[in-house]
Amino acid sequence: MVLRVKNLSVARGGVAVLEGVSFTLAPSDALVVKGPNGIGKTTLLRTVAGLQPAFKGTVEAPEDSLAYAAHSDGLKSMLSVAENLEFWAHVFGQKDITQAVDAFDLSDLRNRLAGSLSAGQKRRLGLARLLVTARPIWILDEPTVSLDTASVALFAQAVQRHLSSGGSALLATHIDLGLQANILDVGPFKAVAGATAISGYDEAFL
């Protein structure tokens, strides 16, 4: 379950933002993507997750091994916490949600509608969704937004457990989670102006 990214260039709105990104994520590894706002961290993660095509380069990962979590968690406000988790567990072919509920301290909230949760509680629910996917490689975009210190600690524990059980994680975050993580500073990969900076579809017109 190794994620290999080779010479990857990613584009946003038809313009390349990052070029030549390469890294390898082995089991039990965590890799934190760092860089200033707007440099293309989200675009990079979405591309690695397969949600948008790579402009250049390759992303190699075993099939059905990636789980992606971002700002919107695919939660339905009219479903309860348990129903939301059960739904995603079923979609990913899993049954048990207890572990996910316990890991993010959601057992008291099980039957509350997701719409009535606070922002931080919702975020915890969104992260709990990761556990029910049973996917080994996590791709997390700003996972700690609107979490309080205690919840961040819960999250750090969950990631730690995931890593020690052979999983891996690719994170874009500004908070130090106290993980044994490598740092990938994407600053040097910022795309430079030039013919190659225009993504595939408009290049032909230059």
Binding site: A49, L51, Y68, A70, S72, G74, W88, F92, G93
Partner: peptide, 16 residues
């Protein structure tokens, strides 16, 4: 609705 809350993005990465 599924587009707005990101469900479709997550569906695209799901086995379905």
């Amino acid at each position: 609705l599924d587009w707005e809350d990101g469900t479709l993005d997550l569906m695209a990465t799901a086995p379905l």
